[in-house]
Amino acid sequence: MLELRQVTVAYGASPVLHSVSFEVPSGACSALIGANGAGKTTTLRAISGLVRPRQGQILFEGQDITNWAPERITAAGISHVPEGRRIFAGLTVLENLEVATTPRKDRSGVKSDLVQVYTLFPRLHERRTQLGWSLSGGEQQMLAIGRAIMARPRLLMLDEASLGLAPLVVVEVYKAIQEINRQGITVLLVEQNVSLAMRLAQWSYALQRGVLTLSGTTNDLKNDPRLREVYLGA
């Protein structure tokens, strides 16, 4: 579904990603793991068009999207929930969800999708008229995810969805992510919390200082002795 071919990204002179290649299979849940600063967020930013790769290609459903503008990539079916949630603080919950439908061409499905988001996260329905900034961290994460699926993506990318959340809330959020995946949306997770990500993902890719060092099914990786290095960020 999504394929990176030898993608190199550099900020200024120093490369952050070195020739990274991997493929995200359709329908599955995959996880990109690695220590802080390994290049996970940069990978997502490159996929969604926020940074331009210096070299390499990014293909989505067979189409080369490497130099597309972010809004065109979103319209093509990739939604990116950024680290830190980045919800619109001055908009209500409902307005946050509404603006996210901008790239859609089918206006008719919006209502049913709204119902779907509210079913997934009943708490958002309770708080639909509240302004974004008044939500708790967990609610903000739910809204960020809900907002992303309002664009009807076929691929949903989540950056550090568990960061800074209470353990119970993490469970709730990850259950929802699982549910979204079950409904047929391909999921790509970025997590520092490696064990959490690997519990959910069928496929895993490990980044170490900008280089893809491990990739395969999660079960294979779990038994790989090199996984410890990924944890430690060595």
Partner: peptide, 23 residues
């Protein structure tokens, strides 16, 4: 929708871009 989009871009331009808003 236009007003909401304007407010969204004002709140966080990059997040708006990620959601496919024509910033």
């Amino acid at each position: 929708m236009f007003g909401k989009q304007v407010r969204a871009v004002s709140n966080d331009e990059q997040a708006a871009q990620l959601l496919g808003l024509p910033v």
